[in-house]
Simulated assay, not measured.
Amino acid sequence: MLAENSFASPNSRRSSLNKRHRMSLPNSRAYLNPCFSSREETGVMLAKLINYYARSPDTIVLSIKPNATALAFEIAKELELPLDLFLVNSFQYDGMTVGAITDRSDQPLLKEQIIRGCDISKETVDNLIAEERVKLETLKKECCPLNLPLPTSEDGTLIICTDGIQSGQDARNTITILKKILGYRGKIVLVAGVMGSDAQKMFTKDTEEAIALLCPQIVGTVASWYDDTRVLTNEEVKQIMSQARELSNNI
């Protein structure tokens, strides 16, 4: 599903968002006004786009980065679905992403072609992984994800959420880890407030649906699309996870 075709009405909320962008300089994202007031507002709007998943069995909402947790919580609350924070850290060497890890597996995702092509030694890769593990474990302790079991049925669905996608590297790593390392066989639905049009086309091949409120050609920084540019603290993420636990218990 291409979300750019989802709202046809000229009076719709997204139509007004697009209008705000057209009124600015179309070829320079740096001068455009923010479209969304907050991640929470964006989450509510996204939930309306995918309300056909409301109360679906074997369906979980996953935030794929801590700062998108408030957005994901609104989606989970509106759809009456359990929510969790799925921690994936990508790591780089000389400016290139060469792998990613998750707290749910000891096995890393490695970009073998890049590693071989750049002649990166195993020792260097192991050191990068070790450094990233420390960061990930610290993040896990401070944010307290619920570590809900993934749906095991092929009819299960994961709704993975983020506030915005530019190149899609982190989302791509997340999807690959879910499928190749964790063995997930169900459906994946990717939702975001804003998603680059090229990235959306790419993700339609790897997911059941790739949905965004806006799909411009150039995204720039994700934060520039939001009036509220504040980054959630880990303590705030932890509080949202506590609310998510109560939400799951009441479903």
Rank of each mutant, 00 (worst) to 15 (best):
L46M: 03
G164I: 03
Y184H: 06
E74S: 04
E4Y: 10
A47D: 05
K135F: 04
V44I: 14
I188N: 00
G43S: 10
Q166R: 14
P10F: 07
L79C: 03
S15H: 15
A199K: 00
D163I: 00
L148K: 10
K19N: 09
F36I: 07
N5F: 15
L213A: 00
T97F: 06
A76L: 04
L213T: 00
K238C: 12
A210F: 09
A244S: 13
R185Q: 15
I115C: 09
K48Y: 12
V98R: 01
G99N: 01
L17A: 04
K65R: 10
V61T: 05
Y52Q: 12
K77I: 04
G186W: 03
Q166G: 13
D170Q: 11
P149E: 06
T162A: 09
L109S: 11
L110T: 05
S167Y: 05
K48A: 15
I251T: 14
A47V: 10
K111S: 09
V189N: 07
K77G: 04
S16I: 12
E154I: 10
T162F: 03
P34C: 04
M241Y: 00
L25R: 13
A192P: 02
E80D: 14
I101K: 00
F86W: 00
E80A: 12
A30Q: 12
E78H: 11
C35Y: 00
I101D: 00
T124S: 07
R39W: 06
E4D: 13
I165Y: 05
R245Q: 12
D106I: 06
L46V: 05
R245N: 05
S105M: 08
A100V: 10
C118F: 15
E40C: 04
L87M: 08
L85F: 14
K141A: 12
A72S: 13
G95I: 01
L214Q: 07
D227F: 08
A30D: 11
T157V: 14
L25D: 14
A3W: 02
T59H: 06
A54V: 01
M202A: 11
T69C: 10
N5C: 11
I251S: 12
M1F: 08
R22P: 02
Q113W: 04
N234T: 02
R104K: 04
V134S: 07
C118K: 15
A223T: 12
S38R: 04
T221D: 07
D228T: 07
T174L: 02
E236A: 10
D155T: 14
I160A: 05
Q92T: 13
Q107M: 15
I251M: 15
K238N: 11
D106L: 09
I165P: 03
E131A: 12
L2A: 12
L49D: 08
P216R: 02
